[in-house]
Computed example of a mutant assay.
Amino acid sequence: MSRAASIKDVANHAQVAVGTVSNVLNNPDRVSKRTKDRVLQAIDELGFVRNDAARQLRAGHSRTIGVVVLDVGNPFFTSLVRAAEDAAAVNGSAVLLGDSGHDANRESHYIDLFQEQRVQGLLISPVGDVADRLEALRQRGVPTVLVDRLADEDRFSSVSVDDDAGGYLAARHLLDLGRRKLAFVGGPLSIRQVSDRLLGARRAVAEVDGAALEVLDSDGQSVLAGRGVGNSLVERGAGNMPDGIFCANDLLALGVMQSLTMMNGVRIPDDVALIGYDDIDFAVSAVVPLSSIRQPTDAIGRTAIELLTEELDAQHARHRAVVFTPELVVRQSTAGAAAPH
């Protein structure tokens, strides 16, 4: 196997000094057009690729941004990361993605890895309380922005959605349809977003006499987990089913829908009104188009990069917490659903 061309090989091929090649790569304004063209031709002919690791060592950081999310398989996070990646590209940066899978040890591994890679900064949707760890990271020159989690502005910048308000919107919508036997599907409650959505739902139910809210813990937040909850509901029998279900995310809601409608003949929304959370692309194309609480994923991703850019600016010393308001999107899974007799 032939070795990769070095910067010295390029200099010899172009018949210039090594420093001239370095200027072409890093400070092209210092080099005449004729010399620059000769060096670029040598680079092309030799297939030279610059050693960015060496440049990172000199600069103390790279042109990359680390992003750690809870579940890259969830379209909510996929859309968020894509928006962040687009915004970072405008600033000449690239995104390195890590999926914690709701695992604190795996999350810690990615934080270590991104620090070793000398990332400019870190965006993270944390599994638990990592404030002290992120504070230490910032002291080492790596600023952090919390994503999909509200942070203490004295310590960090953050971008999030008011999940308490979103949970209230979802449950209030079911209650306004006349549904009184509600169920909340989601878990684990140690995830702040899930517990906040439940808190909002409980607040809405407390406002209506005769309404009740049952909490059904799911084994994860996937379609398969939702299908398992749906199957357990069917086993109870029609008389013991809730008449309105609020799922902590759309994947769970789609799984519940599959179980109830495709496998067990429950009518949505006639027998059970169903609403999810996130408003992912799949929601509109479900077998029964799914009502959901929309989160502005594009705005969240772009704002996260904006906040990180502010953190990287030495002149900007103040942290900010940006909180978006969620929106109710009504589709056939609840639309026109009168209270069942």
Rank of each mutant, 00 (worst) to 15 (best):
F114W: 07
A88R: 04
A5N: 11
M1W: 10
S2C: 00
M263H: 15
L189F: 11
C247G: 04
V68G: 11
P75M: 09
V272D: 11
R320S: 14
G301E: 15
M1D: 14
D152G: 09
E85T: 14
V49T: 11
V119F: 10
A5S: 15
R82Y: 11
V185M: 10
R34V: 12
D176L: 06
V205N: 08
R34H: 13
T297K: 14
V223P: 02
Q258A: 13
D271C: 09
Y110N: 00
R50M: 13
A151S: 08
V215G: 01
R38N: 12
V81G: 06
D278Y: 09
S93M: 10
P269L: 05
R55M: 05
L57Q: 11
R203D: 12
I124R: 01
A238K: 15
I111F: 09
A88C: 09
G167R: 04
H173T: 00
D37C: 02
L312N: 11
L96R: 12
A14H: 05
D162V: 01
R82I: 07
S218V: 02
D278W: 10
L252A: 01
S333E: 06
H61P: 01
A136F: 03
R267C: 08
V21A: 06
Q332V: 00
F156N: 01
S259V: 06
L251T: 06
D176E: 15
P126D: 05
H102M: 12
L175N: 02
P242R: 07
